[in-house]
Design a protein around this nucleic acid. Structure first.
Lengths: 341, 341
DNA sequence: CCCGGTTACCCAATCGATTGTGTAAGGCGG
DNA sequence: CCGCCTTACACAATCGATTGGGTAACCGGG
C-alpha cells in the first residue's frame, strides 16, 4: 500500500538516477538497451537496483522525448474507408493486436474512400510522424501510392491490393472461383454478380474470379448481369433491383462481393416476392458474423480478416526493418448455408 | 514544379529561421502563436515572409518536440469494447471527426469488455501521454474510473454512463419507454426483454425504461421475461430460445436492447416457425444501418450515435480546459417498421 | 536633447531520453 | 611495482519547439 508515487508528476529517468546517485544515461542503458549494451553499462547489482526502483516508482518512459531523439515513434498509421464497415473494423482488430505485440501503437483514420480525404489523412498521419502506414482504402489507380513511394514513406496495403505494392489481402480471385464452382454444381445456369466498387481490387478480383471460372465451366455471363454498386446494404438493394428489372432470363443465383450488399439484395428479392434459397440463391463475401445469424442464413466466402490484419502488421514491420516484402494472399473458404442450399 | 524540398529530411523551425536570417523563436511565434503574440513578435512583412517560406518548404511542426516542451500531445485516447461493434465504430467516427476539427488526433483501443484488458489499455494510452481519455466500455461498478479520478486523468464516458462521471450517452431510459408505449399501443400484453449485459448502463437503462413504463401502463413483466445476454447476434438468439422455452404464456413481442441481439432473436423465432411481425413483434435498439434493410425490416430506437461521439469530444475538451461538465443525454426516437407493425 | 514607450527582434534555458566518448578504479600478468 | 585491460560508470551534445526575459533602434513629446 505504498504511495505508488509521492503525488507529484510523472517520474523521469533523471529522478531515478538522482535517487540512486547515478547518471541518467546509465539508467537509460539499463532499462532500454538490449542485454549486451546494458551489461556494459553497469554492474549486475546496480542494474537490479535500477529495475527495482523503476518498478516501485512506476516509471514509464516518455515516448515524446525518446522519439524526438531517435526519430521513431513506434506508431503505425492505419487508413480505412470507414471503421463502421465491419470488414475493416475486424481487420483493424487484427492489426491492433499484432501491433501491440510488437510494441507498436496504431492510429486509425477514416477516409470515406474519398481521394482528397485520403491525402489529408495521410498528411496528418505523417505530420504525427508515424513510422509507417497501413493503407486499407487503396484505389487501383493509386496516384497517392506512387507519391508515397517517392517520398520514401514506408507503407503496406491491407484488404485491397494494387499491383506492384506490398499487401496483405484475401485471395479474392480464388474466393470468386469457389462461388462459381458452388453455384454451378447446384445446377444454376443463369447468374448475376453484384460487383462492388470498380476502384477496389476486392470487387474486381472477386468478380473476375467468378466470371472467369463460370465461363471456363461453360456458363455465360452477359454484361448486364454484372452490376457495379456500393458495398453497403442500400447499394446491394439497388443493384438487385437493377438486375431483376433488366436481366432476361432472370437469374436464379446472385453473387454479391460483400455480405452487406448481399443482405440488401435479399431484401430486394423479398420485396419482389421471391424467396431466398428457394427461388433465388444468394452468396455473399467475407462471412461476417451476421451471415450465419440472418433469418435466412447467408452463404458466404469466409475471408480470414483478423489474419489479414495481423499479416499487414508483420509486413510493415519487415518494411520498417528495411527488408523486401512480397504481397501475401490468404486463402478463403466457402461456407454454404440456407441461402444457396 | 519546384522541388518541394531539396530531398533531404523534414524541415525544422531552425531551417526556416536560418534561411531567413532570423531567430527560430521568432518563427515559432509567428507560426504557432495566436494573433496577439505573433504581432508582438515580428513585423507584418517578416511574418508574411515566414509564412510564405513555411508553405514553400512544406514545414510541419514536430509534435514530439512541441509536446515534450508543452507537456501536451493533442491526443485523445479512446477505449471501446470492440470496434467491430457497429455502434461503437459509428460513435468513434463521430469522435474522430469532432476531434480532428479541434486539432486533436485520436487513438483507439479495444478492451473486449475485459476489466484486465481495460486497465492495460488505459495504461498504454497514458504511457503514450494522451491528453485525455474517452471511455466507451465503462462498467457500472467502475473501480477503474475511481482510480483514474484519483490520478487526475481527464476523461469522459461515451455510450455508457456511470453515475457521478461526465458522459455523453443516448437517453436510454427514454428509449425503453418509447418501445413500451409503442408495443402497448399495438395491443401487446405479453412481452419479453432481451436485456443485454448487466454491467452496461445501456442495457440497464433501456430495460428499466421499458419495464417501468410497461408497469405504469398496467402491464406485467414476470422475472423470467427479462433475459440478460450478450450484445451480439448469437447472444440474442440464445436469449430468444430461452424466452421461447421458459415463458408461459409466450410473449407476442420482444424488445432487444441492441439491433444485433434483435437480429439473432429474429433468427430464433423463425427456427420456431414463428413469423416476425405477424406472430411476434420485435423491436431493436440503435437503428444501425442494417435494421431498415433486413428481409423483414426491424423496428428500432434510433440513437444519434455520431452526435454522441461528437458530444463526448466536446465534453472532454471542456474537461481539458479545466471546466466542469455535466452528463449529456441525447434524445432517441423510435422507427417503426414491419417487424412490429 | 533627454526620456519613456514601441517595435522587432534575439538569447538561452527547458522538456526527457539517447548515445558517442571519456575516465577513474581495480585487477592482473610480468 | 608498472603498465594494460576491464569494469562501471559519468559527461555532454543532441533531437525540435517553446517561452520568459532581454535589448537595440527608433519615434514622438516636452
Amino acid at each position: 500500500m505504498e504511495g505508488t508515487t509521492a503525488g507529484d508528476r510523472t517520474v523521469t529517468l533523471k529522478d531515478l538516477a538522482d535517487e540512486l546517485g547515478i547518471h541518467p544515461s546509465t539508467v537509460s542503458r539499463i532499462l532500454h538497451s538490449d542485454a549486451e549494451v546494458a551489461r556494459g553499462a553497469a554492474s549486475v547489482a546496480t542494474a537490479e537496483r535500477v529495475r527495482e526502483l523503476a518498478r516501485k516508482r512506476g516509471y514509464s518512459p516518455d515516448p515524446q522525448a525518446a522519439g524526438l531523439r531517435t526519430r521513431r515513434t513506434r506508431l503505425m498509421g492505419v487508413i480505412v474507408p470507414r471503421l463502421s464497415d465491419l470488414v475493416l473494423a475486424t481487420m483493424y482488430e487484427g492489426i491492433d493486436e499484432a501491433a501491440a505485440a510488437l510494441g507498436y501503437s496504431t492510429f486509425v483514420m477514416n477516409s470515406r474512400d474519398d481521394p482528397e480525404e485520403q491525402r489529408r489523412r495521410t498528411d496528418t498521419m505523417l505530420a504525427r510522424r508515424v513510422d509507417g502506414l497501413i493503407i486499407g482504402d487503396a484505389h487501383l489507380d493509386g496516384g497517392l501510392l506512387q507519391e508515397l513511394t517517392a517520398r520514401k514513406v514506408p507503407f503496406v496495403l491491407v484488404n485491397r491490393r494494387v499491383p506492384g505494392y506490398p499487401s496483405a489481402t484475401c485471395d479474392d480471385v480464388l474466393g470468386g472461383e469457389l462461388v462459381a464452382d458452388h453455384l454451378w454444381s447446384k445446377g444454376h445456369r443463369n447468374v448475376a454478380v453484384i460487383a462492388g466498387e470498380p476502384y477496389a481490387s476486392t470487387a474486381i478480383d472477386r468478380t473476375d474470379g467468378f466470371v472467369d471460372r463460370w465461363r471456363s465451366l461453360g456458363g455465360k455471363v452477359p454484361p448486364k448481369a454484372v452490376v457495379w454498386s456500393r458495398f453497403d446494404t442500400a447499394g446491394g438493394r439497388e443493384a438487385a433491383e437493377d438486375i431483376l428489372t433488366h436481366c432476361h432470363p432472370q437469374p436464379t443465383a446472385l453473387f454479391a462481393v460483400n455480405d452487406f450488399a448481399a443482405i440488401g439484395a435479399m431484401g430486394a428479392l423479398r420485396s419482389h416476392g421471391l424467396t431466398v434459397g428457394v427461388d433465388v440463391a444468394v452468396v455473399g463475401f467475407n462471412d461476417t458474423s451476421l451471415a450465419a445469424e440472418l433469418p435466412i442464413p447467408l452463404s458466404s466466402v469466409r475471408s480470414p480478416m483478423l489474419d489479414i490484419g495481423r499479416t499487414a502488421v508483420q509486413l510493415l514491420k519487415r518494411v520498417l526493418d528495411g527488408k523486401m516484402v512480397e504481397p501475401v494472399r490468404l486463402e478463403p473458404s466457402l461456407c454454404v448455408r440456407e441461402s444457396s442450399a
